[in-house]
């Protein structure tokens, strides 16, 4: 123990382990609990059966009643710990229950039946993952459709965002043309116009274009991100102009220069923007809520919102859907944390 404490309290600097260190580690431990605790609780809960979710107080881990296969019975029987009239306790399988009387048999010797009051039996429980929650949501709620809608919007919007923003950034970083600075300022100025203040007129525009209840009604308004143009422009400014000059010497068209030279060289910045764009579009809520009102066009976020209003008693499905929704973002985070955090620190955008 002493060596462990010594290792944990080891410091690179001089001096003893003082109160500020205790405070720091205490704070981090509390932070770990508060930040991860609720998410872990959600994931654990999503593997519980509906019955287990109704228990109060709740168990930490998902438990379910143990069942056994008894000869002569087709379906597995639930196992109970029974206190018999003679005072002994045994684990027996319940065959049937009428009123307050339960009939149970010994799984090893199913010939003899025991009749006991249901108060004298307690379920035998074991660790069980209710994977059915995850399987059933696809059948019962056309969850697959919502998943597809979300994936479609995220992937298509991100691809168009990358293309359009890269084209604009290329023009703004590599050409001198009249009005270049004005265009750049115009694009950057839209950072100050949050979508929340133009909901009504945007609804009109989208509806005039016939894009209400269409996934494109969510995609098109989102693809011209000023953040993306800014990020890519800053990056492209560092690409030497000589490369472009050389390509022009070789009679390459401007489009070819963009496609074959600028885009590949901008890969790191494009990757950062792609990560951002995927997170933005996957998590979008207010705009899809306004544009998509038909259930079959719902994204995952909209479906979750609709279900949490309706299915208050069906938390076992809602929890499973929530876990699937947070999974992609969590995976992106687990593998690309460094890119995300440095990207945000560099550009100051989320």
């Amino acid at each position: 123990m002493a060596s462990l404490a010594g290792m944990l309290t080891a410091r690179r600097g001089r001096g003893a382990f003082d109160w500020t260190d205790w405070f720091s580690y205490g704070y981090l431990a509390l932070g770990l609990l508060l930040m991860f605790g609720p998410v872990v609780w959600l994931v654990l809960s999503s593997f519980k059966s509906a019955a287990a979710l109704n228990e109060f107080p709740p168990q930490l881990l998902p438990y379910g009643q143990k069942t056994v296969v008894v000869t002569g019975h087709e379906i597995p029987l639930p196992l109970y710990r029974v206190t018999l009239p003679d005072g002994t306790t045994r684990e027996l399988a319940e065959v049937r229950r009428i009123g307050i009387q339960a009939t149970l048999v010994d799984p090893k010797a199913p010939e003899q039946e025991y009749k006991v009051n249901i108060r004298d039996r307690k379920p035998v429980r074991e660790f069980q993952l209710a994977l059915n929650n995850y399987i059933e949501i696809f059948g019962k709620f056309s969850f697959g459709t919502f998943l597809w809608n979300s994936v479609f919007i995220t992937v298509v919007a991100t691809l168009i965002t990358l293309l359009f923003n890269a084209m604009a950034a290329f023009a703004l970083s590599k050409y001198r043309f009249g009005g270049r600075n004005a265009v750049f300022l115009l694009i950057i100025s839209t950072l100050m116009i949050p979508p929340t203040i133009i909901l009504v007129p945007n609804f009109l525009v989208v509806s005039e274009l016939g894009l209400l209840n269409s996934l494109w009604g969510v995609i098109w308004p989102a693809v011209a991100t000023p953040t993306g143009v800014f990020l890519l422009r800053q990056y492209m400014l560092t690409i030497p102009d000589e490369l472009i000059e050389a390509a022009r010497m070789d009679n390459a068209s401007e489009w070819r220069i963009f496609w074959r030279i600028i885009l590949p060289l901008s890969a790191p910045a494009l990757a950062v923007l792609a990560i951002f764009s995927v997170m933005w579009r996957w998590n979008d809520f207010l705009w899809p809520l306004i544009v998509l009102s038909r259930t079959e066009k719902f994204t995952l976020q909209l479906a979750l919102n609709a279900f949490q209003g309706e299915l208050t008693t069906q938390w076992h499905y809602l929890l499973a859907m929530t876990v699937i929704t947070l999974l992609p973002v969590t995976l992106v985070f687990a593998f690309l944390q460094r890119h995300i955090t440095t990207g945000i620190a560099a550009a100051g955008v989320k």
Binding site: F36, P38, W41, M279, N283, T322, V329
Partner: peptide, 21 residues
């Protein structure tokens, strides 16, 4: 990462996590 992780979660997921708690 621990402190940053919730930033990436969607608002709907955030709300449901806490509603469940």
């Amino acid at each position: 990462g621990v402190f940053f992780y919730p930033v990436l979660l969607s608002p709907v997921v955030v709300a449901l996590i806490w509603k469940w708690v």
